Amino acid sequence: MRAVQVVGYHRNLELTEVPVPEPAGPWDVIVKIGGAGVCRTDLHILEGQWADKSGVELPYTIGHENAGWVHAVGSAVTNVAEGDKVILHPLVTCGLCRACRSGDDVHCESSAFPGIDTNGGYAEYLRTSARSVVRIDDSLEPADVAALADAGLTAYHAAAKAARRLTPRDRVVVIGAGGLGHIGIQVLKALTPAELIVVDRNPDAVKLAVSIGADHGVVAEGDHVDDVLALTGGHGAEVVVDFVGEGGATAEGVRMLRRAGDYHVVGYGEDVVVPTIDIISTEINIVGNLVGSYNDLCDLMVLAARGAVRLHTAKYALDDFQTAIDDLDGGRVRGRAILIP
């Protein structure tokens, strides 16, 4: 089968032929890939940022946002069958550790991460686990939802956590309306009655945010913190969800926050620098967000089937992987780029 592999850091990916994976254990599931999301993390992998953390041996197949059809299953698999349409939770988890038993499987003590530390989905087939596959509604197509497996799941996880404290009297600010942000906006509109303010440097991204449910769109042109404060009566928002996390967004996000508010960090790239006396005197909370759990993915797919969450995509043939990578790196992708074998 065709597979796009990392052959060296600071080098371009290469398309090659590798054997089709087969079930090696009773819980294995082989998925015929219908769509694989192209994520900014993939760029970081090529830059070598994940080399030490993942410990992966090169070459290997990249791609951690995957959906498709069940091709083959191990002897113990009963939750899916050949031909089922599925989306894949990005982790292969053990099911036995404390985190898995608690439903917090993203913190599994013995997990594998296809596309990060083992072979992923920039290919025609992928091996995963019965614990990782979620059957999707007949109305959904793998290529249309593949990026919900990570980008969407991360956005859902953060938005769902934020929504727990929001009431109709509250305001929530979303920083960044790109690949993750445009999903988070839709999830927040589905889960909370709070007033939603979206901030982005790109006027077109702000227009998109308003079209999918934002109550206010603010273009980050220099006065955007003051604009947000004006929209919140000078107090700031009860919740800020930052999908950017770099370029000064963290300092601005804290400034947009109301006393006793929650600042959710999703995007990353710079430090959050807040004097401890300010954290104490205003009693703000700084909340980290990783990818969501299997149950989060199940909930997200229900919203997708209802039409409450729609992924904006740009689709590329698998052979055009380099164009997709270049477009993402150059800021030319609106929503998420998807590779289709």
Rank of each mutant, 00 (worst) to 15 (best):
A237H: 09
A237V: 01
A237S: 12
E238Y: 00
E238T: 08
E238I: 02
V239R: 09
V240S: 11
V240I: 06
V240L: 07
D242C: 04
F243H: 05
F243K: 00
F243P: 07
E246G: 01
E246R: 14
E246C: 06
E246I: 00
E246S: 12
G247R: 07
G247F: 04
G248Q: 04
G248V: 07
A249M: 01
A249T: 09
A251N: 04
E252Y: 00
G253S: 05
G253P: 09
R255M: 08
R255K: 14
M256N: 11
M256I: 05
R258A: 15
R258G: 01
R258F: 01
R259M: 01
R259D: 00
A260W: 08
D262V: 00
D262P: 03
Y263P: 08
H264S: 05
H264A: 07
V265A: 12
V266A: 12
V266Q: 12
V266S: 13
V266N: 10
V266K: 09
Y268I: 13
G269H: 13
G269I: 09
G269P: 11
D271H: 13
V272F: 09
V272C: 15
V272S: 13
V273C: 06
V273I: 14
V273R: 14
V274N: 12
I279V: 15
I280L: 08
I280D: 00
E283Y: 01
I284M: 09
I284F: 02
I284R: 14
N285E: 07
I286R: 06
G288V: 10
N289E: 08
V291P: 11
G292S: 10
G292P: 10
G292A: 07
S293G: 09
Y294A: 06
Y294I: 13
Y294T: 13
N295R: 11
N295I: 04
N295G: 09
L297H: 02
C298F: 01
C298N: 06
M301C: 05
V302C: 01
V302M: 10
A304V: 10
A305W: 07
G307R: 04
G307Y: 02
G307F: 03
G307P: 05
G307N: 07
A308Y: 07
A308T: 04
A308W: 02
A308R: 15
R310I: 00
H312A: 05
T313C: 02
A314Q: 15
K315N: 06
K315I: 12
K315Q: 15
K315E: 15
K315D: 08
Y316R: 09
Y316K: 08
A317H: 14
A317V: 00
L318G: 06
L318D: 08
D319F: 08
D320L: 05
D320T: 03
